[in-house]
């Protein structure tokens, strides 16, 4: 579903991403680990077509992102570290708007179902989002992904700043989506969450994917050692 082929990005002679190759298939949760500036967010931004690759190709559902930016965006949902919705609108209205931008239209009942599925409490649907916690906003983000019926999910440190309970709930939702066949590419610093949630783990350093492994094949302790070994 998501493929990076020799993907590179250079900013003013600084190589932010160097010849990245990775694949995320339907149902996979691929966790990208790495220090700040390792190239995780650059990878996500290239898949979103927010930036152009210097070389190589980002492919979503067999389409080149650079060539078909609108068609590829029909197949994805994106949740950034801080999901900033419109504070003056309610959760339901935000969901209606951001799903509507993808050309999908639902009645309030259906939208409420998606919010419920994302784990948001029913009594806050019609509250203005400016009163929401970060965890609640991230759940609206998941509801957007559900309602968009996205084939792929791009997440940029989505659990950063969430309390453990909220973080755990978020992970459960990702697994649920994964079981529905959604391909997920998640940039994160959270080794524990990557091991618990991910199916595949990639470690990046200075724009290079230095390690790629299956989450099943490694335990928490070894993952931490491996990660630190690469960071040193």
């Amino acid at each position: 579903m998501l493929h990076a082929q020799n993907l590179s990005k250079e900013y003013d002679s600084n190589l932010a991403l160097n010849c990245l190759n990775l694949s995320v298939e339907a149902g996979d949760i691929y966790c990208l680990l790495g220090a700040n500036g390792a190239g995780k967010s650059t990878t996500i931004n290239l898949f979103l077509n927010f930036i152009k690759p210097t070389s190589g190709t980002a492919i979503i559902d067999q389409m080149d992102v650079s060539q078909e930016p609108l068609k590829t965006k029909e197949r994805i949902a994106y949740i950034p570290e801080n999901l900033n919705l419109y504070g003056e609108l309610t959760g339901l209205e935000n969901l209606e708007y951001f799903v509507g931008l993808s050309g999908k239209k639902y009645d309030d009942g259906t939208l409420a179902e998606y919010l419920k599925e994302a784990g948001l409490q029913a009594n806050v649907y019609k509250q203005r989002v400016k009163s929401y916690s970060k965890g609640m906003r991230q759940k609206v983000g998941i509801a957007i992904a559900l309602a968009k019926k996205a084939k792929a999910l791009l997440l940029d440190e989505p659990t950063s700043g969430l309390d453990p309970k909220a973080s755990n709930e978020f992970s459960e939702l990702l697994v649920k989506l994964s079981n529905q066949g959604v391909a997920t590419l998640m940039a994160t610093h959270d080794l524990f969450r990557a091991k618990e949630t991910g199916t595949d783990i990639g470690i990046m350093k200075a724009g290079v994917l230095v390690e790629e492994l299956s989450a099943e094949d490694i335990n928490h302790s070894d993952l931490e050692k491996l990660y630190l070994a690469h960071m040193n």
Binding site: L48, F50, K73, P80, G103
Partner: peptide, 18 residues
Amino acid sequence: ESGSLVLIASSPLNVSLW
């Protein structure tokens, strides 16, 4: 600046038209 543009820009739309 508020961060909502990334959500909008990740939608299949022409930002100029939007």
